[in-house]
Amino acid sequence: MQRRAEMLKRIEKQLHDLCQPLTTLQCRLELGAMCADEASLLEAVQGGLQETEKLFAGIGAMRESLQREMSRMHESEDVEE
């Protein structure tokens, strides 16, 4: 029960960590599209790539904790058998 609560808390934090770069990415791209000149679009794309790096890191962390939880689940299933 406690482990489940910890897991939910971790998912909540990881979701929060994804929200920040995703909002920045969205706003960067929308602002670039609003200005629509070459320099603004280029800046939006370059900045957008920096934000996707942060998103990749966030997804990596989520994948890691998912794999950890799955292997724990398999271990406990093996013990029960």
Binding site: C19, Q20, L22, T23, Q26, C27, E30, L31, M34
Partner: peptide, 10 residues
């Protein structure tokens, strides 16, 4: 407003 959001919505 919950993140992530659109600049247009903000």
């Amino acid at each position: 407003l919950l993140k992530p959001f659109s600049l247009h919505e903000l």
